[in-house]
């Protein structure tokens, strides 16, 4: 039992990182009803830029965070212009496929920037183990978890207390009505990508910093974890993304403890498989789907 609870604590800590990635996917999906597959690789490239600065120029933590986030945002905007803005509104599949093509391109760029397989990623969290009763937690995980909570709070403030945040939610809900309100939806698409890239860049930094290394596979890894967590929670739902991320973290941590790394990786797919059969809309999605259907019948 203690083991299980310990795993759950670890899972929640790590799952908070998944939650951030899932939020990135779900925000873009909610606003545009399209998937951006190159979200993970954009973060990977941002992290590579950060590492590159770290290896060649400076060890200043703030600078490296900035470089990571700014590069991720720049790449995010590049992807938006190329795969979403330039592609017709009704061609969702074309956007998804071209975002996959860009993925390959981004990996190529990363390989040219830093050709070896693995690079150290700067760790700014001091690593100690903190005892809480029978449990212990690593301090870098606590830092990551707390920073994630801060990010979630900021995102919430942005979405619910600011004008662009309201516009983002309005466009997700009803794009046509938003146009009547004088909301310029192509600006909002752009904004969604920018916000999501900031979130992704920070998430990437936190996750890699706790891991203290980066490889080109981080792009694939981040896209998979983010997509799975999003689908577990329910596509397009913000609460769902957070719950899905945490659930994925907890399940993986337990699978790893009881079964090893291979079982951990399989457990993620198995979990998704079961969820899609039992609750195809995800944890929160089902409710939203029925709620919206009821809503549109009445409105």
């Amino acid at each position: 039992m203690t083991d299980f609870l310990q795993n759950c604590i670890d899972g929640v800590m790590f799952g908070s990182g998944y939650a951030l990635l899932a939020l990135g996917f779900t925000l873009v999906f909610g606003v545009m009803k399209r998937l951006n597959l190159s979200f993970g690789p954009s973060i990977m490239l941002g992290a590579y830029a950060g590492t590159w600065v770290y290896l060649n120029f400076s060890q200043n933590a703030l600078l490296i965070v900035l470089v990571t986030v700014i590069t991720t945002v720049a790449v995010g905007i590049y992807v938006e212009r190329l795969c979403f803005w330039a592609v017709r509104r009704d061609a969702a599949i074309a956007s998804m496929v071209s975002s996959f093509a860009i993925w390959m391109q981004l990996e190529e760029v990363a390989m040219h920037l830093l050709p070896e397989r693995t690079y150290p990623f700067p760790t700014f969290f001091t690593s100690t183990v903190i005892d809480i009763g029978p449990f212990f937690v690593r301090s870098e995980h606590i830092s990551m978890f707390l920073l994630t909570l801060v990010l979630l709070a900021l995102l919430h403030l942005f979405l619910f207390r600011t004008r662009p945040g309201l516009a983002l939610r309005a466009v997700s809900d009803n794009p046509l009505a938003s146009t009547y309100m004088g909301i310029n939806s192509s600006n909002i698409f752009f904004l969604a990508f920018a916000v999501v890239s900031v979130l992704g860049g920070l998430a990437g930094f936190l996750i890699l910093s706790a891991d203290s290394q980066v490889t080109p596979f981080f792009g694939l890894w981040a896209t998979f974890k983010g997509l799975i967590a999003m689908m577990l929670g329910g596509m397009g739902s913000l609460t769902g993304a957070i719950l899905g991320g945490l659930l994925l973290g907890v399940v993986e941590a337990n699978a790893f403890w009881y079964g090893g790394p291979l079982i951990r990786d399989i457990s993620a797919y198995l979990l998704l498989f079961i969820m899609l059969i039992v609750r195809p809309g995800g944890l929160v999605g089902q409710r939203i789907v029925t709620q919206q259907q009821a809503a549109y019948e009445r409105v």
């Binding site: 939610r169 309005a170 997700s172 809900d173 009803n174 046509l176 009505a177 009547y180 939203i288 709620q291 919206q292 809503a295 549109y296 409105v299």
Partner: peptide, 12 residues
């Protein structure tokens, strides 16, 4: 313009 069919934001 107040559009035909109201066009409310159902989830807001």
């Amino acid at each position: 313009q107040v559009p035909e069919g109201r066009q409310l934001f159902a989830t807001l």
